[in-house]
Computed example of a mutant assay.
Amino acid sequence: MVERANRPSALASTPGLGKQPQVSFSDDNSRVSAELPTGETLEILLYGATVISWKDASGNEKLWLSDATKLDGSKAVRGGIPVVFPVFGTAPDHAQASKLPQHGFARTSRWEFLGKSTSESAPGPPAAADLSVKLDFGLSSANLDTKTKSLWPFAFGLIYSVTLNRESLTTSLVVTNDDDKPFDFQVLLHTYLRVKDIAAVSIKGLEGASYIDKVDNASTKTQASTVTIAGETDRVYTPTTPTSEPVSVVEAGKTTFSIVRDSLGNVVVWNPWTDKAAGLADFAPKDGFKNMVCVEPGAVSGFQTLEPGDAFEGAQTITISPR
């Protein structure tokens, strides 16, 4: 994949069609933005292909982003939707992943923007149309620096697609093994959802699921009822329901987010609470844990093995409800 230094500042709509989604680049080519004719917006940092903003038509932000996070490519982004690959956390006992940094290198690599595709606007006003825009990003072993290649010396390709609809956001990742030997990997979509008050939040759809409680010595437990957050929470769930059945974030009795997974068998639920947030230099404001919860689809309970020439695809679709 080749970096293009001189990208157009905006990608115009096709003549002859109705009002179309607009895609534009920041002046320094570090970000890609999209806007639907109905007002929904999306912003993605090429560093990590990290979604850093998703707003509804009224301008309400749906993702939580730390006020102290770096957006200059010097450090992984705290907030939004970072892409975790090829390891979740660290894996000192895994031969292939033992040398990799926390959460791997996808979230700290510069991705290439591959292009956009849009749905055609139906006749009539934009509010009645089925509008969407899909942005594609790529990362391969050829893009990695020498140090990262030495830590994980496999030929691979990643295609990350982010699709903005009027009431939903879909993020999907395709992993291909371009090597002549198999490799193991984990993947996670580290989604920080914005809420008004974590004390009023519950998470449905994980009832009966076993989970690893990383705050309690990685002990294995079973979720008896809906999930509520009242302290530091770091859990890896394996839901018993099909991935097509939603995991829902409910606030003050109203569903605000519904997450449907595709080929991602785990859901991580994370909130740092008071003490953990205080110890994270890039977490701000320090009481920001009251306004966020991470609900993160992934394949992280073990490692996936990908044979030469094979591909893996996993995705999430987050649907919002009006507040």
Rank of each mutant, 00 (worst) to 15 (best):
Q316S: 09
S132L: 07
A315E: 05
N177G: 02
E207T: 15
A12G: 10
G298H: 06
S202C: 12
G231M: 12
F185R: 01
N217G: 15
N217T: 11
G124I: 13
P246A: 01
P246S: 04
P86K: 00
I212F: 07
A49K: 05
A5E: 12
S117L: 07
T238Q: 15
V215N: 12
E245K: 15
S219C: 09
D130V: 13
T14W: 12
A127P: 06
A284N: 03
G18K: 07
T38H: 04
G79W: 00
Q186E: 10
S258R: 14
E296A: 05
K276L: 14
K181Q: 13
P15E: 03
I320F: 15
C294R: 06
Q102V: 11
S168Y: 09
T228C: 11
A97N: 09
G265K: 13
V174R: 05
F154Q: 01
A155G: 08
D310W: 08
A277C: 14
D67T: 08
E35K: 12
K116W: 15
L151S: 03
L158N: 04
T118A: 01
S202V: 10
A200N: 15
D216Q: 13
D287C: 05
Q20T: 04
S219I: 11
S58Y: 13
L189C: 06
G231I: 06
V293S: 01
S172T: 10
A224Q: 15
A34T: 10
T274R: 15
N29W: 05
L45Y: 05
S58T: 08
P123I: 06
S168I: 04
E251G: 11
D136C: 12
L169P: 03
N177C: 01
Y237E: 08
K147I: 09
V175Q: 02
P15L: 06
G104C: 08
P123V: 07
A57C: 10
R110C: 11
P86M: 03
E296S: 02
G16P: 04
R7Q: 08
V51F: 01
K286H: 07
K55C: 11
L36H: 08
G59A: 04
V84N: 04
P126F: 07
F154A: 00
E35A: 05
T317A: 03
W270H: 09
A127C: 07
E296R: 00
P101K: 00
A311W: 05
L131G: 02
P15C: 03
Y211C: 11
Q316F: 05
L42G: 02
S248E: 15
G124R: 04
S301G: 11
G79Q: 00
P153N: 01
K19V: 15
G18N: 04
F257E: 14
G48F: 02
L164K: 00
A278V: 09
S263T: 06
I203Y: 14
L42W: 08
K147S: 14
A127T: 10
V133I: 03
S140L: 03
P37V: 06
A230E: 12
G73S: 05
V236H: 10
P92F: 02
P123W: 01
A315G: 00
Y211V: 12
T243W: 14
L71R: 09
T255Y: 13
G39M: 03
T118Q: 08
F185D: 08
T274Q: 15
G16T: 02
F185I: 06
D282T: 05
T108F: 09
G48M: 04
T220C: 14
L188M: 06
I81W: 00
V250Q: 07
